[in-house]
């Protein structure tokens, strides 16, 4: 049993007009075995929360804390957070020319596990995971995210999620830009991950569509940099009907 605790988190970014506060006191606790959906209109700070948890240098934490089983996550470097069991599936995965997918996956797996995976079982594991996500074999020799379609990038993020097998996964709008088939494939991957053990999922999304495939235990509505409302799966149904109009005054 693991716990990810976010306490009164304040985060700002540098702008030309000086620092601008994006997160204004976020409190959220995720236990392993739970799936939390974070929903909210554009600009509410959902992605900022995701990137702050992963340690992106663009975001400055001004106060608050993030604890993973009591360990201070904010004191860790980006790579140390990943090795501690945090995973961020990015909305816009970065292209890295010259680095093949297979080389990248092996290097990341070695870093996360602290030892190189056994070659034979690893190759099989990768192949199985790729098949399940309907990723073709030649993918492994392509350059990391380079020239990938939007759907390929998202499936590749979930491929990493399954292979690196973290304790907590933060999925930043993994559903956006996917057609219904790809959405189903990606959701199946996330559900396999959740079912594989004591895992926690923080599912960030703008739309309720993905919640037909991934069932959240808790739903949090994010508005203006903090949690405006929280509840069970029923809250998502309400959002499905009414959108964010109750929170921001206009349909978003």
């Amino acid at each position: 049993m693991s716990t990810l605790e976010i306490r009164d988190l304040h985060v700002s970014v540098e702008t030309e007009a000086g620092p601008k506060e994006i997160l204004r006191g976020v409190d959220l606790t995720v236990q392993s075995g739970q799936t939390h959906a974070i929903m909210g209109p554009n600009g509410s700070g959902k992605s900022t929360l995701a990137y702050s948890l992963a340690g992106h240098p663009k975001y400055t934490v001004t106060s608050g804390e993030v604890l993973l089983d009591g360990e201070d996550v904010l004191a860790m470097t980006v790579d140390a957070r990943a090795r501690a069991g945090l995973f961020l599936a990015m909305q816009y995965p970065v292209e890295v020319p010259g680095v093949s997918v297979s080389n990248f996956l092996r290097t990341a797996k070695t870093a996360v596990d602290g030892e190189a995976p056994k070659l034979r079982t690893w190759v099989k594991e990768v192949k199985t995971a790729m098949d399940q996500l309907a990723i073709s074999d030649d993918f492994a020799e392509r350059d990391l995210n380079t020239g990938f379609s939007g759907g390929e990038k998202k499936r590749h993020e979930i491929l990493q999620l399954e292979l690196l097998n973290p304790t907590f996964a933060v999925l930043d709008e993994t559903d956006s830009g996917l057609d219904i088939d790809a959405l189903r494939v990606v959701s199946d991957g996330v559900n396999r991950f959740s079912a594989s053990g004591d895992k926690g999922v923080l599912l960030i999304t703008h739309y309720t569509r993905i919640l037909r495939y991934i069932k959240p235990d808790f739903v949090h509505v994010f508005v203006a940099g903090r949690v405006a409302e929280e509840g069970g799966p029923k809250l998502a149904e309400k959002l499905e009907e009414k959108g964010y109009v109750d929170y921001v005054g206009t349909p978003a």
Binding site: A54, T77, V96, V99, A111
Partner: peptide, 23 residues
């Protein structure tokens, strides 16, 4: 690029090597 690789657990020096080697 550095952030992406590090977010997968790869230390900064090794990430830099990967990218330059790739280049």
């Amino acid at each position: 690029q550095l952030f992406y690789l590090m977010a997968r657990g790869i230390p900064a020096d090794e990430a830099r090597r990967l990218v330059v080697r790739g280049f």
